[in-house]
Each structure stands twice: as C-alpha cells, then as structure tokens.
C-alpha cells in the first residue's frame, strides 16, 4: 500500500496541531491517502490534552517568560513539553488499524520501536501507549478518532531537560515537587542519553521512515500538503489552535 510522506516541517505548535487536524479532515473526505509526517517545534511548546485545563497543568507565567507556547491538542492524554524532540504524526483510516485500542497503539508504535533498534537501542513497546529504552520512557503517543479516521501523534526525545520540563509543568502537590522530579528523571530518557552522543533530527527521521515502511509493509511516496489541507490548516491555526478560547476553554 502506498502512503504519503510529507516533508519535515519546523513550525509553531498551533500550526503543527492545525496541520494534523487538516490532514485528518482531508483523509475523512477521501481527498488524500494515509499520511505520515515528521516535525519539530519552533518555538518550544507545551501541549495539553483535549480535556485538560491549561491553568491547572502549566505555569503560564513561566512559559511566557521562557518564550514557550501553550496549545491544546485535539488528541487526549497529558501535558507534554515539546523541546528537543522529533514528533511524528500518522493519519490513517480506522479500518487500517485493529479495533482494539491497545492493539492499535501497538501497531503504530512498533515502527518506532524498530527505528530505535536501527539506531542501536533495545527499545520496547509498553502498553498502552509508551515506548521504553532500558525501562525508561523515550516516546509518548496520543490518539484521537473522528469520522472513521485515526490520528496518532507522538514524540521521540532527542534530549531531555527534566528541570526545564518541571519549571513549566505544574505538579499536583507542590510539597512533592522534588520527589516528582526525581521520579521523572529516573523514568524518562532520550536518544542522547542512551547513545552517549548528540543525534541529528535527520538521522532520526531516516530511521523512522525505515521503521514505518518495514513494519507496516507500506511504501512511502514523497508528497506535499494539498491546497485544501494547507488552507484548512492556516484557518484552523488562526481561528482555533492559536486562540485563547481554544487553549483556555477549560
């Protein structure tokens, strides 16, 4: 099966989330094939899950000072700081994934596990939606479904800065902040930490491309956003993801 591979895009969080939703809509209307893309965030961005509250999850003042955007995702799950990472997104029809949720995560996470192994790491899928290296999380993944289409996007950490992460994210109980940070440091890792060298975005994307083609048994055809998608994405960024009404609606 032929899927579309979009060029790597370095953009702000509102635009990245808008593009993911625009592809989902285009796929639901049968305007485009199943699609994969890779991207990075400029500036760095905290995304919160669809049902979260920005005020509760993020220290908004600190984020502003640090020049970090805050954007609500269309997918569920928790708050994430997108800093030194490669993000992927996959849009495909629901009939191309197992109906069981864990199995569907597994199917779409195994290509990433494969890519990490190509890079020389012993990675494993940890249900429901994490990928671990030496027992520590290196990739988190989130899904949403709409109109018969699945959007899954996720991260692969190049470098991790737990101190920065927790200067921006709130913890449920301030008294336990040190403990939470200690625990997170022990449970999260990055490519740089595991490989003992810095890793370029291109190198990771090349491995991910191989992972997706090999594990999903697909071929990737380089393409670009259609006019429909890019216009819809610009509109969604402007009227939805970049607005206070959206990011602070809860």
């Amino acid at each position: 099966m032929k899927w579309r591979l979009l060029p790597m895009m370095e953009l702000n969080g509102a635009m990245q989330m808008a593009i993911d939703e625009a592809i989902l809509t285009a796929r639901a209307r049968h305007k485009v094939p199943n699609t994969i893309r890779f991207y990075t965030w400029k500036p760095s961005c905290v995304t919160i899950g669809y049902f979260q509250s920005a005020q509760q999850e993020v220290d908004l003042e600190k984020a502003k000072q640090a020049g970090v955007d805050v954007v609500r995702r269309y997918t569920g799950g928790g708050a994430v700081l997108h800093d030194n990472e490669v993000t992927y997104s996959i849009v495909l029809t629901e009939s191309d994934v197992p109906s069981n949720i864990i199995d569907s995560y597994k199917k779409l996470c195994l290509p990433i596990v494969y890519a990490l192994r190509l890079l020389g790491l012993k990675a494993e899928f940890a249900p429901i939606n994490d990928i671990l290296v030496s027992g520590r999380k290196i990739s988190g993944n989130a899904q949403t479904r709409k109109q018969g289409v699945v959007l899954q996007h996720g991260t692969l950490l190049l470098k991790v800065d737990i101190a920065k992460m927790f200067s921006l994210l709130k913890v449920p109980n301030e008294k336990l902040r040190d403990k939470v940070i200690e625990r997170a440091s022990a449970r999260v890792t990055s490519l740089e930490q595991e490989l003992g060298r810095s890793v370029a975005v291109d190198e990771v994307i090349a491995a991910l491309e191989k992972g997706f083609t090999a594990v999903l048994g697909i071929s990737l055809e380089r393409g670009k956003l259609t006019r429909f998608e890019s216009e819809l994405a610009k509109r969604l960024a402007r009227e939805k993801y970049a607005t206070k009404e959206w990011s602070f609606m809860r």
Binding site: G49, Y50, F51, T75, G76, Q143, T144, R145, K146, Q147
Partner: peptide, 18 residues
C-alpha cells in the same frame, strides 16, 4: 448530521463522534 456532537476520553482513548 456528520458534525461532532460529543467528544470523549476514556482511560486511553479519545475521539469525537458524529
């Protein structure tokens, strides 16, 4: 018809129903 009327998140699923 076809518009999202409810959005939901379960333990590990999230979606928007038409």
């Amino acid at each position: 018809k076809g518009e999202t009327y409810v959005s939901m998140e379960s333990v590990k699923w999230s979606g928007h129903l038409e």
